[in-house]
Design a protein around this nucleic acid. Structure first.
Length: 324
DNA sequence: TGTATTTGACCGGT
DNA sequence: ACCGGTCAAATACA
Protein backbone atom coordinates (compact mmCIF):
# COMPACT_ATOMS: atom_id res chain seq x y z
CA UNK A 1 0.00 0.00 0.00
CA UNK A 2 1.34 3.35 -0.92
CA UNK A 3 0.93 6.36 1.23
CA UNK A 4 0.90 9.94 0.27
CA UNK A 5 3.68 11.76 2.01
CA UNK A 6 2.09 14.72 3.70
CA UNK A 7 5.42 16.50 3.68
CA UNK A 8 5.77 16.16 -0.08
CA UNK A 9 6.16 19.39 -1.92
CA UNK A 10 3.00 20.89 -3.29
CA UNK A 11 2.77 22.30 -6.76
CA UNK A 12 2.95 26.04 -7.00
CA UNK A 13 -0.44 27.69 -7.02
CA UNK A 14 -1.95 24.57 -5.51
CA UNK A 15 -5.12 25.82 -3.80
CA UNK A 16 -4.72 25.90 -0.03
CA UNK A 17 -8.23 24.61 0.60
CA UNK A 18 -7.58 21.58 -1.55
CA UNK A 19 -4.29 21.06 0.22
CA UNK A 20 -6.07 21.11 3.56
CA UNK A 21 -8.69 18.69 2.29
CA UNK A 22 -6.00 16.34 1.11
CA UNK A 23 -4.17 16.55 4.42
CA UNK A 24 -7.38 15.73 6.25
CA UNK A 25 -8.01 12.77 4.01
CA UNK A 26 -4.47 11.55 4.55
CA UNK A 27 -5.05 11.69 8.29
CA UNK A 28 -8.31 9.82 7.94
CA UNK A 29 -6.71 7.16 5.88
CA UNK A 30 -3.95 6.77 8.43
CA UNK A 31 -6.61 6.22 11.11
CA UNK A 32 -8.32 3.62 8.97
CA UNK A 33 -5.03 1.85 8.45
CA UNK A 34 -4.39 1.84 12.18
CA UNK A 35 -7.85 0.40 12.70
CA UNK A 36 -7.14 -2.32 10.19
CA UNK A 37 -3.87 -3.18 11.91
CA UNK A 38 -5.61 -3.32 15.28
CA UNK A 39 -8.25 -5.62 13.83
CA UNK A 40 -5.55 -7.93 12.59
CA UNK A 41 -4.22 -8.26 16.09
CA UNK A 42 -7.53 -8.52 17.85
CA UNK A 43 -8.66 -11.86 19.15
CA UNK A 44 -12.08 -13.09 20.07
CA UNK A 45 -13.87 -11.81 17.02
CA UNK A 46 -15.71 -14.37 14.99
CA UNK A 47 -14.51 -14.95 11.46
CA UNK A 48 -17.58 -13.44 9.88
CA UNK A 49 -17.38 -10.34 12.04
CA UNK A 50 -13.76 -9.84 11.06
CA UNK A 51 -14.76 -10.17 7.42
CA UNK A 52 -17.42 -7.52 7.79
CA UNK A 53 -14.99 -5.22 9.57
CA UNK A 54 -12.38 -5.77 6.91
CA UNK A 55 -14.90 -4.94 4.23
CA UNK A 56 -15.66 -1.71 6.00
CA UNK A 57 -12.03 -0.78 6.33
CA UNK A 58 -11.33 -1.62 2.71
CA UNK A 59 -14.24 0.57 1.67
CA UNK A 60 -13.00 3.39 3.87
CA UNK A 61 -9.51 3.14 2.45
CA UNK A 62 -10.78 3.02 -1.11
CA UNK A 63 -12.90 6.09 -0.53
CA UNK A 64 -10.00 8.01 0.93
CA UNK A 65 -7.69 6.92 -1.83
CA UNK A 66 -10.14 7.78 -4.57
CA UNK A 67 -10.83 11.17 -3.03
CA UNK A 68 -7.13 11.90 -2.76
CA UNK A 69 -6.60 10.93 -6.34
CA UNK A 70 -9.37 13.18 -7.55
CA UNK A 71 -8.17 16.11 -5.47
CA UNK A 72 -4.54 15.71 -6.27
CA UNK A 73 -5.36 14.86 -9.88
CA UNK A 74 -2.29 13.38 -11.43
CA UNK A 75 -0.30 11.74 -8.68
CA UNK A 76 0.39 8.46 -10.40
CA UNK A 77 1.11 6.66 -7.15
CA UNK A 78 -2.39 7.41 -6.07
CA UNK A 79 -4.00 6.73 -9.39
CA UNK A 80 -2.44 3.32 -9.47
CA UNK A 81 -4.45 2.12 -6.54
CA UNK A 82 -7.80 3.80 -6.84
CA UNK A 83 -10.74 1.88 -8.22
CA UNK A 84 -10.70 1.64 -11.95
CA UNK A 85 -13.90 3.55 -12.36
CA UNK A 86 -12.30 6.53 -10.72
CA UNK A 87 -9.25 6.18 -12.86
CA UNK A 88 -11.31 6.00 -15.99
CA UNK A 89 -13.25 9.06 -14.99
CA UNK A 90 -10.09 11.02 -14.47
CA UNK A 91 -8.61 9.86 -17.73
CA UNK A 92 -11.81 10.50 -19.63
CA UNK A 93 -11.88 13.97 -18.21
CA UNK A 94 -8.29 14.56 -19.23
CA UNK A 95 -8.97 13.12 -22.63
CA UNK A 96 -12.01 15.25 -23.22
CA UNK A 97 -10.07 18.27 -22.07
CA UNK A 98 -7.36 17.69 -24.63
CA UNK A 99 -9.98 17.13 -27.30
CA UNK A 100 -11.79 20.30 -26.36
CA UNK A 101 -8.65 22.33 -26.48
CA UNK A 102 -7.86 20.94 -29.88
CA UNK A 103 -4.57 19.39 -28.83
CA UNK A 104 -3.30 16.86 -31.33
CA UNK A 105 -2.41 13.40 -30.12
CA UNK A 106 0.33 11.17 -31.46
CA UNK A 107 -2.21 8.99 -33.13
CA UNK A 108 -5.73 9.60 -34.24
CA UNK A 109 -6.87 6.34 -32.70
CA UNK A 110 -4.62 5.93 -29.66
CA UNK A 111 -4.91 8.35 -26.79
CA UNK A 112 -1.90 9.63 -24.94
CA UNK A 113 -1.15 6.97 -22.34
CA UNK A 114 1.72 8.77 -20.67
CA UNK A 115 1.47 8.34 -16.94
CA UNK A 116 -1.49 6.03 -17.21
CA UNK A 117 0.29 3.16 -15.52
CA UNK A 118 3.11 2.71 -13.12
CA UNK A 119 5.46 -0.21 -13.17
CA UNK A 120 5.94 -2.12 -10.02
CA UNK A 121 9.36 -1.61 -8.52
CA UNK A 122 9.92 -4.18 -5.83
CA UNK A 123 6.59 -5.84 -5.32
CA UNK A 124 6.76 -9.07 -3.42
CA UNK A 125 7.27 -11.99 -5.76
CA UNK A 126 6.93 -15.73 -5.46
CA UNK A 127 8.11 -18.16 -8.07
CA UNK A 128 6.81 -21.63 -8.64
CA UNK A 129 7.82 -24.25 -11.18
CA UNK A 130 5.33 -26.89 -12.13
CA UNK A 131 4.86 -29.52 -14.75
CA UNK A 132 1.39 -28.35 -15.63
CA UNK A 133 -0.60 -25.14 -15.43
CA UNK A 134 -2.19 -25.53 -12.05
CA UNK A 135 -5.37 -23.77 -11.06
CA UNK A 136 -4.32 -21.68 -8.09
CA UNK A 137 -7.90 -20.83 -7.23
CA UNK A 138 -7.82 -17.25 -8.46
CA UNK A 139 -9.47 -15.82 -11.52
CA UNK A 140 -6.79 -14.54 -13.88
CA UNK A 141 -7.10 -12.64 -17.09
CA UNK A 142 -4.39 -12.64 -19.69
CA UNK A 143 -3.36 -9.18 -20.75
CA UNK A 144 -0.16 -9.70 -22.66
CA UNK A 145 2.41 -11.96 -24.15
CA UNK A 146 5.99 -11.09 -24.94
CA UNK A 147 8.88 -12.74 -26.62
CA UNK A 148 11.74 -12.60 -24.14
CA UNK A 149 15.32 -12.27 -25.23
CA UNK A 150 17.22 -15.57 -25.12
CA UNK A 151 14.07 -17.35 -23.99
CA UNK A 152 12.74 -20.18 -26.05
CA UNK A 153 9.12 -19.55 -25.19
CA UNK A 154 7.11 -16.36 -24.87
CA UNK A 155 6.16 -15.00 -21.46
CA UNK A 156 2.46 -14.65 -20.66
CA UNK A 157 1.13 -11.90 -18.46
CA UNK A 158 -1.94 -12.26 -16.29
CA UNK A 159 -3.73 -9.90 -13.96
CA UNK A 160 -6.46 -10.57 -11.45
CA UNK A 161 -9.90 -10.56 -13.07
CA UNK A 162 -10.98 -8.22 -10.27
CA UNK A 163 -8.34 -5.61 -11.03
CA UNK A 164 -10.93 -3.10 -12.13
CA UNK A 165 -13.96 -3.90 -10.03
CA UNK A 166 -12.03 -4.44 -6.81
CA UNK A 167 -8.72 -2.75 -7.56
CA UNK A 168 -6.89 -6.00 -6.94
CA UNK A 169 -3.26 -5.52 -7.99
CA UNK A 170 -2.16 -9.15 -8.10
CA UNK A 171 -0.46 -10.26 -11.31
CA UNK A 172 1.44 -13.27 -12.44
CA UNK A 173 3.73 -14.25 -15.28
CA UNK A 174 3.80 -17.71 -16.74
CA UNK A 175 6.60 -18.89 -18.93
CA UNK A 176 7.27 -22.28 -20.35
CA UNK A 177 10.81 -23.24 -19.45
CA UNK A 178 11.04 -26.75 -20.81
CA UNK A 179 9.52 -28.66 -23.68
CA UNK A 180 9.58 -32.28 -22.64
CA UNK A 181 8.32 -32.85 -20.10
CA UNK A 182 6.55 -29.49 -20.16
CA UNK A 183 7.64 -27.24 -17.31
CA UNK A 184 6.22 -23.84 -16.51
CA UNK A 185 7.58 -21.13 -14.27
CA UNK A 186 4.93 -18.99 -12.65
CA UNK A 187 5.92 -15.79 -10.90
CA UNK A 188 3.35 -14.09 -8.72
CA UNK A 189 3.52 -10.38 -8.01
CA UNK A 190 1.67 -8.83 -5.13
CA UNK A 191 -1.22 -10.17 -3.11
CA UNK A 192 -4.84 -10.56 -3.95
CA UNK A 193 -6.97 -7.97 -2.24
CA UNK A 194 -10.09 -9.03 -4.07
CA UNK A 195 -12.86 -10.91 -2.37
CA UNK A 196 -13.04 -13.92 -4.60
CA UNK A 197 -15.73 -15.53 -2.48
CA UNK A 198 -17.58 -17.44 -5.14
CA UNK A 199 -14.55 -19.24 -6.42
CA UNK A 200 -13.14 -19.76 -2.95
CA UNK A 201 -16.39 -21.20 -1.71
CA UNK A 202 -16.50 -23.54 -4.68
CA UNK A 203 -13.05 -24.76 -3.77
CA UNK A 204 -13.99 -25.29 -0.18
CA UNK A 205 -17.20 -27.01 -1.03
CA UNK A 206 -15.28 -29.10 -3.47
CA UNK A 207 -12.75 -29.97 -0.80
CA UNK A 208 -15.50 -30.81 1.62
CA UNK A 209 -17.27 -33.17 -0.75
CA UNK A 210 -14.30 -34.63 -2.56
CA UNK A 211 -13.09 -37.72 -0.82
CA UNK A 212 -9.47 -36.71 -0.91
CA UNK A 213 -7.56 -39.47 0.79
CA UNK A 214 -4.77 -37.30 2.05
CA UNK A 215 -6.39 -34.33 3.67
CA UNK A 216 -9.27 -34.05 6.02
CA UNK A 217 -10.48 -31.27 8.22
CA UNK A 218 -11.39 -31.55 11.81
CA UNK A 219 -14.51 -29.49 11.43
CA UNK A 220 -16.77 -28.62 8.55
CA UNK A 221 -15.95 -25.34 6.94
CA UNK A 222 -18.85 -23.16 6.04
CA UNK A 223 -19.01 -20.17 3.78
CA UNK A 224 -19.11 -17.79 6.69
CA UNK A 225 -15.66 -18.96 7.62
CA UNK A 226 -14.16 -18.10 4.29
CA UNK A 227 -11.31 -15.69 4.34
CA UNK A 228 -10.73 -13.89 1.06
CA UNK A 229 -7.03 -13.80 1.84
CA UNK A 230 -7.03 -17.52 1.76
CA UNK A 231 -8.02 -19.17 -1.47
CA UNK A 232 -5.59 -21.39 -3.28
CA UNK A 233 -6.19 -24.87 -2.21
CA UNK A 234 -6.95 -26.87 -5.27
CA UNK A 235 -3.40 -27.41 -6.45
CA UNK A 236 -2.09 -28.53 -3.09
CA UNK A 237 -4.95 -30.95 -2.90
CA UNK A 238 -3.98 -32.35 -6.25
CA UNK A 239 -0.36 -32.53 -5.16
CA UNK A 240 -1.47 -34.47 -2.18
CA UNK A 241 -3.52 -36.82 -4.27
CA UNK A 242 -0.72 -37.39 -6.76
CA UNK A 243 1.71 -37.98 -3.99
CA UNK A 244 -0.67 -40.36 -2.38
CA UNK A 245 -0.61 -42.43 -5.54
CA UNK A 246 3.11 -42.80 -5.11
CA UNK A 247 2.95 -43.39 -1.44
CA UNK A 248 -0.08 -45.47 -0.64
CA UNK A 249 -0.94 -45.80 2.99
CA UNK A 250 0.33 -42.43 4.10
CA UNK A 251 -1.75 -41.21 6.98
CA UNK A 252 -4.35 -38.50 6.69
CA UNK A 253 -3.29 -35.01 7.42
CA UNK A 254 -5.23 -32.66 9.59
CA UNK A 255 -4.05 -29.18 10.28
CA UNK A 256 -5.44 -28.43 13.68
CA UNK A 257 -5.11 -25.57 16.03
CA UNK A 258 -5.36 -25.85 19.73
CA UNK A 259 -7.76 -22.98 19.76
CA UNK A 260 -11.12 -24.66 19.45
CA UNK A 261 -12.61 -22.41 16.85
CA UNK A 262 -10.64 -23.07 13.76
CA UNK A 263 -8.59 -25.45 11.74
CA UNK A 264 -5.91 -24.39 9.34
CA UNK A 265 -5.44 -24.77 5.64
CA UNK A 266 -2.38 -24.26 3.53
CA UNK A 267 -2.53 -22.58 0.16
CA UNK A 268 -0.27 -23.51 -2.71
CA UNK A 269 1.36 -20.10 -2.46
CA UNK A 270 2.22 -20.77 1.13
CA UNK A 271 3.60 -24.16 0.24
CA UNK A 272 5.72 -22.61 -2.47
CA UNK A 273 7.16 -20.11 -0.06
CA UNK A 274 7.60 -22.89 2.44
CA UNK A 275 9.51 -24.96 -0.07
CA UNK A 276 12.02 -22.28 -0.80
CA UNK A 277 12.50 -20.76 2.61
CA UNK A 278 11.38 -23.25 5.20
CA UNK A 279 9.20 -20.44 6.50
CA UNK A 280 5.51 -20.13 6.02
CA UNK A 281 2.60 -18.14 7.19
CA UNK A 282 -0.44 -20.01 8.31
CA UNK A 283 -3.88 -18.55 7.85
CA UNK A 284 -6.86 -19.54 9.86
CA UNK A 285 -10.45 -18.88 8.95
CA UNK A 286 -10.01 -15.62 10.81
CA UNK A 287 -6.78 -14.23 9.58
CA UNK A 288 -3.05 -14.53 9.68
CA UNK A 289 -2.26 -16.28 12.89
CA UNK A 290 1.44 -16.53 13.00
CA UNK A 291 4.56 -17.54 11.16
CA UNK A 292 6.26 -20.86 11.30
CA UNK A 293 9.95 -21.09 11.24
CA UNK A 294 11.24 -24.43 12.15
CA UNK A 295 14.29 -26.12 10.75
CA UNK A 296 12.51 -29.40 11.12
CA UNK A 297 9.70 -28.33 8.77
CA UNK A 298 11.65 -28.74 5.61
CA UNK A 299 11.73 -31.11 2.71
CA UNK A 300 9.13 -33.58 3.74
CA UNK A 301 6.34 -31.09 3.94
CA UNK A 302 7.17 -29.81 0.52
CA UNK A 303 5.87 -32.82 -1.32
CA UNK A 304 3.37 -33.67 1.35
CA UNK A 305 5.26 -36.86 1.92
CA UNK A 306 4.67 -37.12 5.58
CA UNK A 307 5.93 -40.62 5.90
CA UNK A 308 8.72 -39.54 8.16
CA UNK A 309 6.27 -37.57 10.28
CA UNK A 310 8.69 -34.82 10.95
CA UNK A 311 6.78 -32.02 12.56
CA UNK A 312 4.90 -32.57 15.74
CA UNK A 313 4.38 -29.05 16.88
CA UNK A 314 5.63 -25.57 16.35
CA UNK A 315 5.78 -22.81 18.85
CA UNK A 316 3.55 -19.82 18.27
CA UNK A 317 1.99 -17.04 20.18
CA UNK A 318 -1.02 -19.24 19.80
CA UNK A 319 0.34 -22.75 19.55
CA UNK A 320 -0.50 -24.56 16.35
CA UNK A 321 -0.11 -28.27 16.20
CA UNK A 322 0.44 -30.32 13.12
CA UNK A 323 -0.97 -33.78 13.51
CA UNK A 324 0.65 -35.77 10.76
C1' DT B 1 -24.23 -9.41 -26.25
C1' DG B 2 -20.97 -9.75 -22.76
C1' DT B 3 -16.53 -11.55 -21.58
C1' DA B 4 -11.93 -13.31 -22.60
C1' DT B 5 -7.90 -13.44 -25.58
C1' DT B 6 -4.75 -11.73 -29.04
C1' DT B 7 -1.49 -8.63 -30.50
C1' DG B 8 0.76 -4.37 -31.99
C1' DA B 9 1.76 -0.03 -29.92
C1' DC B 10 3.16 2.56 -26.16
C1' DC B 11 5.83 3.60 -22.11
C1' DG B 12 9.30 3.43 -18.26
C1' DG B 13 13.61 1.84 -16.63
C1' DT B 14 18.25 0.96 -17.59
C1' DA C 1 18.35 2.38 -27.88
C1' DC C 2 16.77 -1.67 -26.11
C1' DC C 3 14.00 -4.65 -23.31
C1' DG C 4 10.13 -6.00 -21.00
C1' DG C 5 5.64 -4.67 -18.75
C1' DT C 6 1.18 -2.75 -19.80
C1' DC C 7 -2.57 -0.88 -22.51
C1' DA C 8 -6.42 -1.18 -25.42
C1' DA C 9 -8.54 -2.01 -30.06
C1' DA C 10 -9.66 -5.87 -32.64
C1' DT C 11 -11.08 -10.35 -32.59
C1' DA C 12 -12.79 -14.77 -30.83
C1' DC C 13 -15.87 -17.24 -28.23
C1' DA C 14 -19.77 -18.80 -25.38
Amino acid sequence: MLYMDSSSSWPENFPSDRRRAIEELVRGREFALQLRNLMHKSVGNSGSQVLVNQDLVVNILNSFTASLSILKNGDSDEVSQVPAQTQLSAWDAAYRKSEDSGESSKSSTIRDRRGCYKRRKCAETRTQNSSDLVDDGHAWRKYGQKVILHAKYPRNYFRCTHKHDQACQATKQVQRIQEDPPMYRTTYYGHHTCKNLLKASQLFLDSATDQCPMISFGTHITEKDLNPLFTSFQSIKREAREDHQHNQGTSDITYKSQSPSSDYLLSSDQMTAFESTGHMTVLSSDDVISGVNSSSCTANAHSLDMGAGIVESVDFDDVLQFDF
